[in-house]
Amino acid sequence: MTFGTILGAWIAVFLTLAIFSYLYKDNPFYKVAEHVFVGVSAGYWASMFFWTQIQPNLFGRLWPASEYSADSFWYKIYDGLHVLTSSVFPAGGIDKGHDMHLIYLLPFALGIMMLLSVSSKLSWFARWGIAYTVGMAAGLRAYGFLNSNVIAQIKGSAVQFVGGDIPFFALIGNSIFNNVVILVGTIAGLAYFYFSKEHKGAFGKLTKVGIYFLMISFGASFGFAVMGRISLLIGRFVDLIDYSKAQYNYATIWMLLIMVVVLGYGAFKDKGKGAKVSG
């Protein structure tokens, strides 16, 4: 096993136990892990966004290698950028299989405008980029929701009650009983969110049925949430068990011991301080 793998295991164990230590109480180990997590995530995301989209798909379309000409003014700008950083702007243009599309100057400009939000004087420029993003997302989402969540779901809840060869009762799958439950649940659930009529009398009873359906749904969500958290705990424990083996130099055991001793010492010192103050 390489030194890098063992070191990686020790770091993974430290970060896992540091996060778990929060269950005892807030402490410096947890703070370190929290800050490392935020920093590494931000760095990784920024780098991925740059190297998978901005460099190949934006700069690659503005200065493609296929149309490189050292005499053109446009590529003279590129050569200047190449002097600054040759990894982003390699010699002879960017070869990512694109043709030149100067229309991409528009998203480039909008992106720069978004970055101007850091300046108090020029921050108004950022509104243009945000406006475009919000408008685009709203249009895109409206279409997606209408098609898949409204029309397809209405179609999906148009169920069969009589005829055909569906059984009267089945625990799972299509049956007359299950289809009646879908119908009652859908209507009662929708009725609960109808606020133009007071929830009284027969309508009130219907909305009460709706509440029961909603409660069952929330209960299922809670159950799934617990299941998910336990799965994540299992995943971390599986790794901790792996890293407690001899080939990783008993990383889990050593790290756990160190943390328990340090936190125990901290608690002991705090207790001493508390006693002095109260005394």
Partner: peptide
Amino acid sequence: VTSIQVNEVMPYVQSGQ
């Protein structure tokens, strides 16, 4: 999907999407 997402995705499964 993760457990927490099941309730959100299940309607698409029920409708055959």
